[in-house]
Nucleic acid binder design. Structure first.
Lengths: 339, 339
DNA sequence: CTGTTAGCGCGTTCAG
DNA sequence: CTGAACGCGCTAACAG
């Protein structure tokens, strides 16, 4: 079957015996069109299977109907959920999503943002892997469209943001551990160059202060949100002369690495070492014992980001920051220390 | 800080004291440009921070540098992996990804495809939720760009495809179960309107034929690839007068639902009912007992889809179909039946 | 209410 | 090797 040659507006106009602009008016629901005209144009359109070229329309109107979405790693279920939520929010508003994955590299992240801007996206939803990379920050500053940061903050950038309230939830988790009698609690997370880490760490510290427990700096391991980092640091922590009896793993991948390392060392969650993981992996509740988690509604977070963006793009609303609650869900992986 | 007004090509031309077309030639690496001209233009460009508008370029050149990517559900780790792989393959080639999620609705799927075409994507990578929806099929037929189907096939459509070799892997899994002494093996999967289901079912049947085992049609449950379907059918199967002693759950979400239902019923994997799941969820190997799975390299599949698309778009290569191997990984969730 | 005209920002013919 | 003019397909401003 031959390529169904792309039919253009002028052909429809000729076929209907009217001018091009009349076709345009009908298709854009301009008020000043006679019923007869509307009829003629629409039937010609249907007959020829005409669909307006959005590229040309975008160039003319200066709006593309696209939103750039940047995530650190689309295979991380947290980001997949956020994207899903945003997609649910953006589709009814008529926006398409340009998706970019940072691939763990700052230069890729910056390049994607620059590319988005050159494609003239109407808005950006961004969950950076680095809040401090110069090129990335420069790109964000040069953005001439609304921007929503997801669980991130960039110094000196006035923008909308949707944030998770990590600190209280991590504090609750840590308090639970300490109240079970643990005195050496470790913390594994990513770099402090992103807000999530700083907030989580803040909650972890706060719980120690409130309970009067001593926080050994050696037990805090900050590096990257990867399974490999989680695995490695778990191994190192447990080989310490005075090892921790409980570990808080901040981040899905870090938690995964932790569990792998425990399995490799033949240690059991709960009995050998108590564990609090971050983010609800679907299988966490079905493990034995079920893993305690800190989590929030990431899909809702994505929907929220979408609605903030839409209200900024469409209604010109000023930047706004929304914080959503985050929860600690004890399930059994934290056990009392034998006295 | 004020909007950094978008700088255009003509301004760069004025600044450099040359014509617009000279600027264009320099930026597009046209051979016939003097070193002096190149120098003048490039320095003016840097000075003013000019970046070409890709929208206008696309309209002029007829190519957008975008690829439409449609998936059934981006929160499904399988699709997230495929998207990641494709992103890795498409970025170096200079393509951006327009991502669409079908949201479980045929009309959404068709609408997304139509939208992609109107945005004049250079290519499509598509993993349909329905291979038979009329609007969807019509949209694919009307596509005037290269198309790569991912683990799908659409009747009458000459196109590239990347496929998983499901049947042998499911057959191996099923044989393993039967050889362990199980005589009533159930199968839960999605609709037969997509290739994966048909292939998986074929493998399941084949194992029965080869071993001479009897396949009770009542034990085959085909519906949808959702956790809810997996949960419900697991419950119904186990309440049968003569329930299965083993279940093959095809699909990540179905398997998840199955595990939830077993947990809810207080049944243990292995001892109460043997299980083979589909697709490697990261935690499957760490459950007790570790779940047997059928899986393949989905990220590689995505990369493959990207390379097929690129070779079609850039080099005009004809449609090609590639099948990648799929594996059965026994781990301990299938146990012998007591004689 | 409708047709004509002028661009949106670029790339690409053509002369020179 | 460079500049001027045209057009990608469409919408918006203006006449009629």
């Amino acid at each position: 079957m031959g390529r169904p040659a792309r039919v253009q507006m002028r052909e429809v106009a000729n076929r209907a015996g009217v001018s091009i602009s009349s076709v345009s008016r009908v298709l854009n629901d301009h008020p000043d069109v006679s019923p007869l005209m509307r009829e003629r144009v629409l039937s010609a359109k249907e007959l020829m299977g005409y669909e307006p070229d959005l590229l040309a329309r975008s160039l003319r109107q200066g709006i593309t109907g696209t939103v750039g979405f940047l995530v650190r790693d689309i295979t991380n279920p947290v980001f997949a959920e956020i994207v899903k939520g945003a997609a649910e929010g953006l589709r009814p508003a008529g926006y398409s999503i340009l998706l970019a994955d940072s691939e763990g590299r700052d230069e890729v992240e910056a390049a994607h943002l620059q590319l988005f801007l050159r494609r003239r996206v109407d808005g950006l939803i961004v969950s950076l892997q680095s809040e401090v990379d110069p090129d990335t920050v420069a790109a964000l500053h040069s953005a001439d469209c609304p921007l929503v940061l997801v669980d991130r903050e960039v110094a000196g950038l006035e923008t909308s943001a949707v944030l998770c309230d990590h600190a209280p939830a991590v504090a609750a988790a840590t308090r639970d551990i300490i109240e079970c009698g643990h005195r050496r609690v470790a913390f594994i997370a990513g770099p402090t160059t992103i807000r999530v880490t700083r907030e989580r760490l803040r909650g972890f510290r706060q719980a120690h202060e409130e309970t009067g427990a001593v926080l050994d700096p050696e037990l805090v391991r900050l590096g990257s949100y990867t399974a490999e980092f989680g695995r490695r640091e778990t191994g190192r922590l447990l080989q310490l002369p005075d090892p921790p009896t409980a570990i808080v793993a901040a981040g899905t991948q870090v938690a995964l690495g932790l569990l792998r390392q425990l399995a490799a060392m033949g240690r059991r969650v709960g009995s050998d070492v108590s564990v609090v993981s971050y983010d609800e992996l679907d299988l966490m509740p079905m493990m034995d014992p079920p893993i305690n988690v800190v989590e929030c509604d990431y899909r809702g977070l994505g929907r929220l980001a979408a609605s903030l963006l839409v209200e900024a793009v469409v209604h010109g609303q000023p930047p706004r920051t929304v914080v959503i609650p985050t929860h600690y869900r004890p399930r059994g992986s934290v056990l009392p220390l034998p006295r």
